[in-house]
């Protein structure tokens, strides 16, 4: 698993959670806030991605990333750690 694969998982969860974004191009430089994802949806997306990665850590450890790529990098680091 590399960061780009985690980006794909996150984007798939974004499209699942916000069906209105199904057709929109989304990449690692986009931020969920700019895409219009609200805070509860963001948590839902991150939890679903964590479950796919088999990762169990408190959500507070995932604050900080400014875009999807940085979030994927952090999830990758936590998975490896």
């Amino acid at each position: 698993m590399d960061s780009d694969q985690i980006v794909e998982i996150i984007i798939a969860e974004i499209r699942e959670t916000v069906p209105e974004l199904a057709e929109q191009a989304i990449g690692r430089d986009d931020s969920m806030a700019d895409l219009g994802v609200d805070s509860i949806e963001r948590s839902e997306i991150i939890l679903a991605a964590m479950e796919q990665l088999g990762l169990k850590i408190p959500m507070v450890q995932l604050h900080g990333p400014r875009n999807i790529g940085e979030l994927a990098d952090l999830l990758l680091a936590k998975s490896s750690g």
């Binding site: 948590s43 839902e44 939890l47």
Partner: peptide, 9 residues
């Protein structure tokens, strides 16, 4: 069996 992943909604 996966309480940690309960959707916040």
């Amino acid at each position: 069996e996966r309480l940690a992943y309960v959707p916040p909604r």
